[in-house]
Simulated scan of single mutants.
Amino acid sequence: MAPAEGSIRDMLAANIKRARTDRGISLSELSRLSKIGKATLSQLESGTGNPTIETVFSLSRALELPISELLDQRTAETFTVVRAADVEVLSGEGVDLRPLRRIETDDALFEIYDQQVREGSRQESLGHVGVEHTVVQDGVLLVGVGDEEVRLGPGDYVGFDASTPHSYTAVEGPVRSVLFLQHRAGEPRRDFSPH
């Protein structure tokens, strides 16, 4: 598969504007829902801002959209190869994510990411739509979900409702893992239309 056209910044700009317009909400309302400053949102929507993981997750939560609907609109192919060098990294406080694949079926939407948690770093999320699945490939990862914490090593798996606040912490060296987000078809989304 050829790399996606445009940068994450360009795709995010177009997709934020489309999602906001489709819902009939103002930039001010999106700012309130996402807890992202209006000026920052304006920059992101114009393609001049620098998106972070935290920003994308906040927008996903506020718009109740899968992250991939904000970052890409790839179409399914029968044979797909994604080269690491061809995928733009989306960075946050402690994590670097590379979106690898979006898979749609009649019943669900799946998003696959290469996730790297930097050594000694912690990445927090207030939550977003979907069910989150993580498989650790290398390193030791501390995963906090609500009031629970679990320590994972290579080959270990955790799954949870991603709308719950959660965190990832690399406790022994950097951590490399596969992040898999699952969304049910017709998952309820907030209705932004006036009542």
Rank of each mutant, 00 (worst) to 15 (best):
Glu132Phe: 14
Gly155Arg: 03
Ala13Leu: 04
Ser46Arg: 15
Arg190Met: 09
Lys35Asn: 10
Phe160Tyr: 15
Ser7Cys: 01
Glu45Lys: 06
Ser26Ile: 08
Leu27Asp: 04
Val87Pro: 07
Thr55Arg: 01
Leu141Ile: 02
Gln73Val: 13
Gly130Glu: 01
Val171Leu: 08
Lys35Met: 06
Gln73Asp: 15
Leu141Arg: 00
Gln137Gly: 11
Leu63Asp: 09
Ala19Arg: 10
Phe57Met: 13
Ile112Thr: 09
Pro154Arg: 08
Arg83Cys: 06
Val56Met: 02
Lys38Ala: 14
Ser60Lys: 07
Val175Glu: 12
Thr164Arg: 10
Glu5Met: 07
Gly155Gln: 08
Phe110Thr: 05
Arg190Val: 08
Gly37Met: 00
Val81Thr: 14
Glu64Val: 12
Phe180Ala: 01
Pro3Phe: 02
Tyr157Glu: 09
Val87Glu: 13
Gly186Met: 06
Gly130Gln: 00
Phe192Ser: 10
Phe57Ser: 11
Ile25Lys: 05
Gln43Ser: 07
Ser26Pro: 14
Glu45Leu: 02
Ala4Gly: 09
Arg118Trp: 13
Val95Cys: 12
Gly47Gln: 01
Ala2Thr: 12
Asp161Ala: 09
Glu187His: 06
Val150Ser: 05
Leu152Thr: 07
Met1Gly: 15
Met11Tyr: 11
Leu141Tyr: 03
Gln123Val: 01
Arg23Ser: 14
Asp161Phe: 06
Asp161Thr: 02
Lys38Ile: 15
Ser91His: 05
Val140Ile: 10
Gly94Met: 03
Thr52Pro: 10
Ala185Glu: 15
Ser46Lys: 14
Glu111Asn: 06
Met1Glu: 08
Gly144Lys: 11
Leu152Pro: 11
Asp96Ser: 09
Gly49Cys: 07
Ile36Trp: 06
Leu109Phe: 01
Val117Tyr: 03
Arg101Lys: 13
Gln73Ala: 14
His128Val: 09
Ser7Gly: 03
Glu104Asn: 10
Gln43Trp: 05
Gln73Cys: 12
Leu181Tyr: 09
Pro99Tyr: 04
Leu41Trp: 07
Asp106Gly: 15
Asp156Tyr: 00
Glu119Leu: 00
Ile8Gly: 01
Ala13Lys: 07
Asp107Asn: 14
Leu71Gly: 07
Ile53Ala: 01
Arg122Met: 06
Asp86Arg: 02
His166Met: 08
Leu59Glu: 08
Gly173Cys: 11
Leu70Ala: 04
Asn50Arg: 04
Ala39Gln: 11
Leu179Arg: 06
Thr164Val: 12
Met11Leu: 11
Asp10Met: 02
Gly24Phe: 10
Gly94Trp: 02
Glu124Gln: 04
Ser125Phe: 05
Gly153Lys: 01
Val150Asn: 04
Met11Asn: 15
Leu141Met: 05
Arg184Asn: 13
Arg189Val: 01
Val171Asp: 04
Val56Trp: 04
Gly144Glu: 15
